[in-house]
Design a protein around this nucleic acid. Sequence first.
RNA 1: GCGACUGUGGCGAAACUGGUAUACGCACGAGACUUAAAAUCUUGCGCCGUCAGGCAUGCGGGUUCGAGUCCCGCCAGUCGCACCA
Length: 819
Amino acid sequence: MEHSYQPRLLEQAIQQGWERQQTWRATEDTSRPKYYCLSMFPYPSGRLHMGHVRNYTIGDVLARYHRMKGFNVLQPMGWDAFGLPAENAAVKNATAPAAWTYSNIDYMRSQLRTLGFAIDWSREIATCKPDYYRWEQWLITRLLEKGLVYRKTGTVNWDPVDQTVLANEQVIDGRGWRSGALVEKREIPMYYMRITAYADELLADLDQLEGWPEQVKAMQRNWIGRSEGAEVRFDYAEGEGHLTVFTTRADTLYGATYVAVAAEHPLASEAAADQPALAAFIEECKRGGVAEADVATQEKKGMATGRHVIHPLTGARLPVWVANYVLMSYGEGAVMAVPAHDQRDFDFATQYGLPIHVVVQPADGPLELPLTEAYTAQGVLVNSEDFSGRPSEEARVKMATVLQALGSGAPRIQYRLRDWGISRQRYWGCPIPIIHCAQCGEVPVPEQDLPVVLPEDVVMDGVGSPIKKDAAFYTTTCPTCGGPAQRETDTMDTFVESSWYFARYACPDQTGAMLDQRANYWLPVDQYVGGIEHAILHLLYARFFNKLMRDVGLITHDEPFSRLLTQGMVLKDGAKMSKSKGNTVDPQALIEEFGADTARFFIIFTSPPEQSLEWSDSGVQGAFRFLKRVWALGQTLTDAAATTDTSTAALAAEAADATVRDLRREVHATLRQANYDMARQQFNTVASASMKLLNTIEKLHTAGAAAATREGFSILLRVLAPITPHLAEALWGRLALGGAVYDATWPTADEQALTRDQVELVLQVNGKLRGNLEVEATASREEIEALARTHPNVLKHLEGLTVRKVVVVPGRLVNLVAN
RNA sequence: GCGACUGUGGCGAAACUGGUAUACGCACGAGACUUAAAAUCUUGCGCCGUCAGGCAUGCGGGUUCGAGUCCCGCCAGUCGCACCA
């Protein structure tokens, strides 16, 4: 028998056993409740990083725990395999993105296997494979027919030197990352998905997601940004035409002193035609990237266009300004400015000497003039003709009605959410299944011609996408008229693949349809685990796709993820691990030195799952030390295993000893707490509990209580089974505790063992700790109070004072309030 | 700039509904075993104070018999902001 803990050998043997027995293979089974446990699939960047290890360890703990609780568990894994890094690597190493990606997948799969996750590998998918993305293309063609996919222009980052579109992360301080050239905004045609058509449902259904963190739901609500207000039409004072603005404060309409438009607004370019200074200013506004964080933090600037619009109620001529803080993508790209009641407008008006008209005042009196800041609260209207004297809320509604009667506006609901631009001008992505025909326009690729396969054997030269230069790819014939036509050469945003993979895991081998009935068995995902950085975009898009798939009749449920756990980042020296900072820890080296169980235990123990985790090499040592102690005690107990009597009678006989009884109570109290923590997903304290259990069991062992020791150890191994599955399984087998630990029943605390005759109370005088009191568990409030008043240290602190009140919290404390 | 979150010993953290602040670890000190070291085991460990006791959960207020926990206002850090995934 081997006595020292040798995790690598042990773990390999155990993993081979799982593979032989197909232990994690999941099949539909209506006799048990199902539990679909999903961790966000990785981008195959080359090697696993600690964030992956943490993510998948948390998911694995949940999967294994639920299996022991009697659930039919599915835990799949796959690869988010399209994306920009493969193109960058291809240019750098002169390889094809496909080859690089596949070799990364092979390596990372082997890494995942050494970590011992309970994954059903038979369901593995890679999104860059045609048998996956063909169904995404199929859905897009359906959505095109339904009008949920459409084409319009969108703004992108343009690098004028490299003549290419840049991702936001490739724009650094307003310059292209390779060329260093100043980036410009440019309008190009793109395909969009009409997510705004689902805005109300995406908002409303957040309320049914009880298993989601409140902060994620709050972020999604704010992102969707539903606001009720009014649209107001301003006719041009010079020439024909009008512009429309959206406002949530129609009550301040009489205070509008100018209108601001985005640099891309048609009126701006029209006015710039004969004004070189204005044209130059518009060019300046177009400099820099499209990222909202950059736009929002830049200095507020504007310039008068010389044009005016007519105020719909007063008929006044208001000047139109171009302002760099107005976004073309929100609303109509124009805002009415009310400096007296909007802080941003106030700042702008002050900067450029524009008038400030107060039209709302607090109910309790007029504002002091001149204003030093905008008055943004609600109030009572003034200087607003017939509306003067009305409260804001009432005036707002009335104003919209009056505008509507005049044909100058209407009540409107506006969303901050914009339609989802899915076109990318890149190679390594899913081809958009559309054919452009001079005769028939844009024609979806017919179902029988799908998939549109992305050629994998290409040369990346760093300038443009290979399929845009590949006539064999883009030359085709029109499916409608048979005439010569061209394929779309843009590919899709990789968020599209990750928006439905969770459903495909249910039936990855289905070649005749996107999904089949197995999806309705497994879905919705019972537990989704992934990084908080995905709180908005990925999760919103996946929710959207779930509803799209529902509405084409593929699935029946409304929401994809019933519960969500957003795990925190892995830090070292207080900073995110990254190559550039040189503070990475390689999971591979860690596993080779200490084994997967130590890595898993450390990660679970060190921080609660939702918080960031600070890496500590000595913490890893501590985890390893603990597992060695478990192993050592397990070895000792193995020898006595066969002869140990663990019957209720044997346990009762041992408990005649007060020390043993107290220790056994501690075991069950710790277990009760661990179960509570497991249920609320606070796994770090479950790991703590396993350490406390070992401490207590060692004392039981020293005390010679063989039955209680073995009972405690069998509890410990089951509590550890989800966290350190290899160690738990090996010792469970050696101690002959019956079957395999992953199929053992999850332990519950013995209520009998938890009962106690005496309880300890805390004594306080005026809220300050002054002593302790041991009383019978059955003692009454009066008895407790009487005892408390006789306690020497309490008497000392009551000297010269009169007790005014006595607070007794049963089982906890007595507080004597005196003065 | 906007939205969301976090802040407790030297360090990671615990404290369920407001009820003994610092569980469980790490680091460190002392001791045992050893020729020695490693490993292992035992033990101590918030700060100030000789004791009595006092002070401590980012900072400033408030509610309460009692606040790490609830409320208000600050400060610092982290995540997201639509073409990184």
